[in-house]
Structure formats: structure tokens, C-alpha cells
Amino acid sequence: MSGNMNLTLKVWRQKNKSDKGRFETYPVQDISPDMSFLEMFDVLNEKLINDGKEPVAFDHDCREGICGMCSMFINGRPHGPLQGVTTCQLHMRSFKTGDTIVVEPWRAKAFPVIKDLAVDRSAFDRIIASGGFISVNTGNAQDANATPIGKDDADASFAAAMCIGCGACVAACKNASAMLFVSAKISQFALLPQGQPERNQRVLNMVAQMDAEGFGSCTNTGACEAECPKGISLSNIARMNRDFIGAQLSSQKV
């Protein structure tokens, strides 16, 4: 078809966690601009299988930008050249024929590579398990409208809660810091009345877990915010910082 593209892919291949890994170069032909980036990888994999080679392993699931599973570092940026978009929602019309595209996995000590482009992000789950919740057992709840919550607060909480946990913030950050992710969850609850009873303990526990996982520290470059597919704001990190300082100084525990 006219308008279809020929591209050169340089893809990170790594057999498993302990393999050193290297780049492999693959040409792909006749790529439709309407394809998503992952569909282009489907084409590549189909070709590799037919050639008797091993296909590229990469994480993906919903392919509509919400599950947070896809995670490719494309030409030096997480999720590629567009803003506010996950890899699965990046379409080939953002590239042109003849382009060379370098694809790497997320890189962080806390996100070890499993194979090729798939990484282990279970550190995020452990951070949530350390405090990213409101402790309410099933059946304990009062009527949903018993406590009114102002629309602005509800909207702000939602804006923080939109985080899909993809890890692009960590991938983009020059320090591999997870503060945008952690602060988004802390903010979601800090902005709601339900979140107040555990507010101090939550921020202390989650920051401690984040540090234990080996993420770097925030130096406010803003790269995370710029690359976040859901536009999570840096102001969440400021809120986390001030909650952390406040919680440390006001805690009764020694």
C-alpha cells in the first residue's frame, strides 16, 4: 500500500536476568501508518517466528492505554515520541519511512530485566502493599453520600489516581526515582477525608519501602511529569514531601 513504511529496528535482546544482553538490528517492511507500535512488533515477531528465530519478548496486555503493562523505551524516551500516550497507543504515523528506531527496556536497579524488553516491576506492588490503601474491611462502610467531598478535591484526587503504574516515570528519570508513582497514590488519599486517619503513617511507610527497593532520589528535573502517559503532576511530589516532613516532625513515635 502507498504510505507504508520501511524501518530499521535496533532492539535490546537479553535471554534472561543474568544474560548480559545486546542490541540486534531488524529491518521491517511495509508498515502501515495506522498500526500501533506494538502491532508493528507483532509483525516483526511473526517474521522472526517464520524465520525460525525467537520472537522479542515484551509486556503488553490491554492495548488501550490503561493497564500499564507496555513499557518500551523508544528513541531515548519512555513510550516514544508523543506526550500523554503509552506505547500501545503510539501509532506508526508518528514515524517516517527510513527511520531507525532504538527500543530498550525500562532501566532501573529496581526494575530488573526478565527477558528482552520485559522488566520486573513488582517493586511497585510492594510499595502499595506497604501503605497504598485505606484500611477498611469489606462491610465496614458508611453510606457513600454520608461525607460530602467537594468536586475540586474529588477531581484532584482522581487526577492523581489516574496513574497506571507503568513505570515510565522511573524510566524517564535520570535518577530512576519512583517519586511520581508513590506521590500519586499518597496524594489520591491525602486529598480525601477517608484518607486522613492513616495519612501520616502511609507516607512514612511508603517512602521507606520506596527507598528499600533501590529507586533513586528526586532532583526535580520534571522528566517524569513530562513523560507520564496520564499527566500526573509534579505537585504530587511536593505534597508527598511536605506530608513526609510533617509526619516525621509530628509523629509521637520515637
Binding site: 485505606i134 462491610g139 462502610a141 457513600a144 460530602p148 467537594g150 468536586k151 477531581d155 480525601l192 477517608q194
Partner: peptide, 21 residues
């Protein structure tokens, strides 16, 4: 009960200006 439970968990449902769901 589901709505009650989810609100208690901090699910940020859409609200009106008066604060109601």
C-alpha cells in the same frame, strides 16, 4: 453496598459541586 465500600476505600467517583456523588 458496593458503592459504599468503594467510596470508603478512596475510589474518587465523579461528584457534583455540593459534594454528592
Amino acid at each position: 453496598n458496593i458503592i459504599d465500600q468503594c467510596v470508603a476505600q478512596g475510589v474518587p467517583f465523579a461528584r457534583e459541586y455540593g459534594g454528592m456523588l
